[in-house]
Design a binder for these strands. Sequence first.
DNA 1: CGAGGCGTCCACCCGCAGGTGGAGGGGCAG
DNA 2: CTGCCCCTCCACCTGCGGGTGGACGCCTCG
Lengths: 214, 214
Amino acid sequence: MKTRILVVDDQTVVREGLVLLLELLPGIDVAGACGDGEQAVAMVAELRPDVVLMDLRMPRMDGVEATRRIKEAHPDVGIVVLTTYADDDSIFAALRAGARGYLTKDAGADEIARAVDAVRDGASQLDPAVQRRLVEAVAAGGRPRRAGLPDGLTRREAEVLALIARGRSNTEIAGDLFISEATVKTHINNLFAKANLRDRAQAVTYAYEHGLVG
Amino acid sequence: MKTRILVVDDQTVVREGLVLLLELLPGIDVAGACGDGEQAVAMVAELRPDVVLMDLRMPRMDGVEATRRIKEAHPDVGIVVLTTYADDDSIFAALRAGARGYLTKDAGADEIARAVDAVRDGASQLDPAVQRRLVEAVAAGGRPRRAGLPDGLTRREAEVLALIARGRSNTEIAGDLFISEATVKTHINNLFAKANLRDRAQAVTYAYEHGLVG
DNA sequence: CGAGGCGTCCACCCGCAGGTGGAGGGGCAG
DNA sequence: CTGCCCCTCCACCTGCGGGTGGACGCCTCG
């Protein structure tokens, strides 16, 4: 069973080029093509393709809105965004709207094919640069590291705290910082007093909540 | 200039197989290989590879922690996780720790090569299923709320862990859960063993990294 | 039925974490 | 110069946290 695709792009050359390109690929069958979001929504309802290859910048209704409406009415239809731009706004808007793939127009036919296959199988295939953005969003997502030291902690105390949050023992911290264990204890006692902490477990929580680690 | 790679996997067969496999690839040069996280950290400092191919489940120090330390000391070294498991916990923990690629062991040589290239060039290459998870996390808007418990923790153990992460002492936890302190200790000892933790400070870190709190 | 996992509990031991009270040197500002 | 803060270090004590090796009832599953 070939994968049935709907191509949506307002630029005629691009659209027709894509159609030709896609029909050369084994396992892919171009069910239709159109040039704006409104038509796309209508044609999905009519043709019921497996996957929609969607441009973002289009007249009358943009790709994000079209994606949203299509996913609303037909959640089982996979949508792969294929666009020139890969800025964060476009990426996140499209993914939030329900797109499962995101490629730039630098992509080759094989990449498009991979993306279509992945999306049809319920997976995802994104442009490597887009993957990077996502990874970064996830990595940063959660706790943006704040700059200043909370509660008047000294630099050294914060340093010790960070090591505590890394699960290091006092002896290990002493080794890490080339100071004696006694000094480590002093710093710890001081920072406990300043931050109103009882033990290192609370200290770790404190470190995470204040973005000193994470 | 060939891309220099460090292979990290505790299973000898897998590790040596990977080395052979990778050396067949043009453009890749295997700089070294080792079997646990501690060695990995040391070898990165010594060999300065371009990319580390990292397993997650390993003795002595797991891949997430090793990734974190490597990225801390050498932010320019790219890390690609190659593991059997693709659960949300592992994925997000690894990415948060600084991994830029994530593949499962179903990946073929070509996929590994693509991932290595992408990461060396500052991009990302993830397993399609992993991409899907990320897309869904983004689409869901918020951060991933994990359902399953990591490392085979029982519900009760996770409950105790959550209280530890909130800075509660054993006596307090006993009070919170209406059980004896002895029971609390038992749960703690069990979860320490399962998650390979040494003390409650490490437990708090673990809880945060696995999204049990935060 | 028996095996095994889970949750509950106990006694005992030990070490490191945490608290107290000091002391000395270097840097920076008033 | 003279505080004052930061970092460094010491001795001592206490107790909670963590490890060991059990025990028992309950449930599920083969």
